[in-house]
Computed example of a mutant assay.
Amino acid sequence: MDRYVDIATDDVHLSVLRGFMLVRRDGEELGRVALDDIAAVIVHAHGVTFSANLCTRLAQRGALIVFCGPNHAPHSLLWPLEGHHAQGGRMQAQLAASKPLKKNLWKQVVVAKIRMQQAILHAAGENADAFDRLARKVRSGDPENVEAQAARRYWPLLFGPGFQRDRNAHDVNVFLNYGYTVLRACVARAVIAAGLHPTLGMHHHNRANAFALADDLMEPFRPLVDWTARQLLRDNFGNNNGGIVLDSQAKERLVRMLSFDLLLPESRTPVSGCVQRLSVSLARSFEQRRAMLEFPVPPKALELAEL
């Protein structure tokens, strides 16, 4: 499995040594990771420095460097210029995609997300029958914003009636922020590897968002982060006198979510592999001008118990 390396120690220097990323502080080696194993480096700490050689070697392997703020949400990403041998043609097809095609693609994404939310709520012991009706209600482009209707039902059922999704809150949102950061890096890497431009989204289109397409494609997988965060609360991870602390064990559980197996038509595949399949299917949808996205089957409660 690809490794997501978390840099949480202040004032370290990252460099390359014989095929490894070397982590040093004050001249002392703190650790090393094989470059070929790295999918992304996630930086939370202050005063971290890099060698230009390391950035180049990571880019050659398609690995990202993610810079996070104090709330563990991503502020910027460093990504490779080239990602696929057919990148030019695929980006041209992406640019030329018609509005009806993008609306149909977004419909498929929203339906897949609602189905995944339904599976998560069933595993949590909640009545999620309404989500089946909501999924069938989604039309091309989701003009009725069924996605938001589902979210208004989903969050209180999963985390309680007082919960609000707030990136700056110091409750379970801390787990969600970090989990979404890891998931976003995974999806962004897959999008680039599929030869697509991550800025050109199907639905998300904020001018300041350089990874709008990654934000589109991560939507069906977000509920898996939500479930993992709920399990961390249940297991009392990171609980410090009533507050949430994102410790190394909690981070490990959230990253491990990417290795959770989901069912595809012909096999069981880790979440990271499903993300890659979805990104490639999107590239083919642009090339063939028809919506043909490939999503995994939502897991059952017994399967989710492994997360």
Rank of each mutant, 00 (worst) to 15 (best):
P265I: 03
V245H: 15
T269C: 14
L263G: 09
D247N: 12
A185S: 15
I244F: 11
T228Y: 00
T199Q: 15
R230Y: 12
N173K: 04
S259N: 14
H205N: 15
Q276H: 13
A185I: 01
T228E: 05
E147V: 08
I192D: 07
S248A: 15
R234S: 12
N168D: 15
M257C: 13
P223Y: 06
F260E: 06
R165K: 11
G160L: 03
Q164E: 15
N145E: 05
F237Q: 12
W155H: 08
R167F: 09
R189L: 03
L264H: 13
R153Y: 13
S272D: 11
N173F: 02
F159P: 12
P156A: 09
P220A: 06
S267H: 13
A190T: 08
D247V: 03
A212W: 03
G195C: 04
M218D: 00
T199N: 11
R253F: 01
T228A: 15
L254P: 05
Q249L: 15
N145Y: 07
G273A: 07
N177W: 02
A194W: 01
E147P: 09
A194F: 02
Q231H: 11
R207N: 06
F159I: 09
N209M: 04
A169N: 08
A148T: 11
R189T: 03
A190I: 05
L158I: 06
R268Y: 13
V255K: 11
R222N: 03
N173D: 07
D171A: 10
H204Y: 05
M257K: 09
Q276W: 10
N145C: 04
R165T: 01
D166S: 14
F163H: 09
A214F: 02
R256S: 12
I244E: 00
Y180A: 01
H170P: 00
G243T: 14
L200A: 11
Q149I: 03
A193I: 04
S259L: 10
L264Q: 15
Q276F: 06
A148G: 14
R184H: 03
L176T: 00
V225L: 01
G160C: 07
P161C: 06
L157H: 12
Q276C: 08
G179E: 00
F163K: 05
R153C: 10
V275W: 01
V225T: 13
T228C: 14
Y178G: 06
G160Q: 06
G162S: 12
T181H: 03
L213G: 06
A193K: 14
V275K: 03
L232P: 07
F237A: 14
G201K: 03
A151G: 06
N173L: 05
P198G: 08
L254C: 06
V225H: 02
P143Y: 02
R189M: 05
E144G: 00
S272L: 12
A212E: 05
V275G: 02
R184T: 00
V275F: 02
V245N: 13
L217R: 03
L262K: 11
R222I: 01
R152S: 08
L224F: 09
E252R: 13
